[in-house]
Design a protein around this nucleic acid. Structure first.
Lengths: 294, 294
DNA sequence: CGTTTTCTGTGCATTCTTGCACAGGACCGG
DNA sequence: CCGGTCCTGTGCAAGAATGCACAGAAAACG
């Protein structure tokens, strides 16, 4: 049963009883309608209509088609209005992905968004691998740094998260607290185990301290943070995370050059929808309230 | 939501995830598939798929379409197999029409046919007006005489119903019983009120008796028969109907020239179907058993 | 790391569908 | 009885959808 258009044509003929009437409704020439019916009947091997000078009377098969196509037309009409409307409504799924490090910063935003738009089911994905927006894996991605992006992705700056140098009280009791970045001699540091990282504060750290001062290195951000908390040395932790842990002591005040940009990335097709726009404005509003950001 | 073929194309793309795969299944070029999707999305004003190098991933709208079109395809497949099969099966409606005069002759045939083919719903229409087969009003018509027929109707002889001259005992007690058609003087007759009727026995009657002997005339066959039963005169009644009424007495034995042919008429498109053929053979078998016919 | 495969996407020629004009038949109303 | 109207049906030309060839890009594979 290929060629659904011919079924649609036959449906209108069965509904209206005449070829001409169906042609008017369908917006085609009546010759086209005749040819569609002929083609469909030839393929089915059965007559759908009794032809006579006053019109086409559906046979039993034609009435069967009428009933089936009637519901089909209704289903398609509903589908059409759903799809046309869904770009304008804030409902359905909203899939947001981000790096794991800022999950606890974002979660309150997600929850309040869902509270504001109860029709929306929020999915918040944090995973090792980067989710790809052009594969339809997420509507919105929140990413750190200034990495390259796909051509079809629209990128917006969200905030600049401040990071500072921290150490535990236990570390300071043992090694003392440096007064400035000129006073780092004899101190040990925690740094990412990657020569050419893009994180600005780690680039600054590698340029400032001696390599043998890096006492602890790891690839995983969470592992680095944990190392500082365990007293392995002085290390960078984002200010908002450090503020949650009273055991951490700020070594130096945050600097603008240490700030790391946070970007909102959306796929160009989804960016225009009201659902995504609603979330974006909600997210930006929330970001304005964030302390430790600029 | 016109152009159902584009929905079908989009359905296959959503189902398979690639344009190329959908093109193979649909038996068209992949460029055609791309153009269908583009056209459909443009008309809906919403993206159905996220495009990427490995294929098309359906969006929320695309998944919605997938679900709707899935059931549509199934419905159409069922419809197709029903229509293709129904020409070969004996089921559904069977509409038979005839003149009212032979309804009680046909009814047992219809009932036994329905008993033999329980899938069939029989509708037996007897009405004043002649039902038109080319308007799809009936599958089979049983008609008397040798009237003209539509070009698309296939006509078969069914039987020749015998009619005889009858009167009531009361009439005979009063007027006597004529020994032959040469002994009709002084008798009164019941005849159709129509100069040029096609019924052979009435033509014979008008040619045989004097006009003033026709004591009772009517247009309706049932009214004529009732007039004979009421003793209005001698009149023609079909033998099978007269045999049911013991009050009627046969005046003259049936003659071949009084016989009226009974024709089966079907529309050429429906004539080929097994359902109609089954009824026709059943009807012919039953007609062989009919007494008062030849 | 280069190669192969498998996708999508687009300009161009072709085929096929569609529209048009007209014929023919049936029905309706005067 | 006869013109007007509303149907269906068909040959022919215009237009639109399709197929083809090729480009380009990304993933898979050895």
């Amino acid at each position: 049963m290929d060629n659904w258009d011919e079924i649609r044509t036959a449906f209108q003929v069965a509904r209206l009883g005449t070829v001409s009437g169906a042609a008017d409704v369908l917006g085609v020439h009546h010759a086209t309608v005749i040819r569609h019916i002929d083609s469909l009947e030839r393929r089915l091997g059965a007559k759908l209509f009794q032809r006579h000078a006053r019109g086409y009377t559906p046979t039993e098969a034609g009435r069967d088609l009428l009933a089936v196509a009637q519901t089909t037309e209704e289903q398609f009409a509903h589908l059409s209005s759903r799809i046309k409307g869904q770009g304008e409504t804030v409902s359905g799924e909203l899939v947001v992905t981000s790096i794991a490090g800022i999950a606890d910063l974002l979660t309150p935003v997600m929850v309040s968004f869902q509270r504001n738009w109860p029709e929306v089911r929020v999915r918040f994905l944090t995973d090792m691998r980067v989710f790809r927006l052009d594969y339809g894996e997420a509507h919105v991605a929140i990413r750190a740094g200034t990495g390259p992006e796909e051509p079809d992705n629209v990128v917006q700056p969200l905030a600049r998260i401040q990071s500072g140098l921290y150490a535990t009280k236990a570390y300071l009791d043992r090694f003392g607290k440096p007064a400035s970045d000129a006073d780092f001699a004899g101190h040990r540091f925690v740094c990412v185990d990657h020569e050419n990282t893009r994180a600005p504060f780690y680039r600054w750290l590698r340029a400032t301290v001696q390599p043998d001062q890096i006492a602890y290195a790891a690839t995983e951000p969470a592992a680095l943070e944990e190392a500082v908390r365990q007293g392995a040395g002085i290390g960078f932790i984002s200010c908002f995370r450090a503020s949650l842990d009273p055991a951490l002591v700020e070594i130096l005040p945050p600097r603008a050059e240490w700030e790391s940009p946070l970007r909102i990335v959306t796929h160009v097709d989804l960016h225009r929808t009201r659902k995504v726009q609603a979330f974006l404005s909600h997210l930006k509003d929330a970001a304005k309230e964030w302390a430790f950001c600029s």
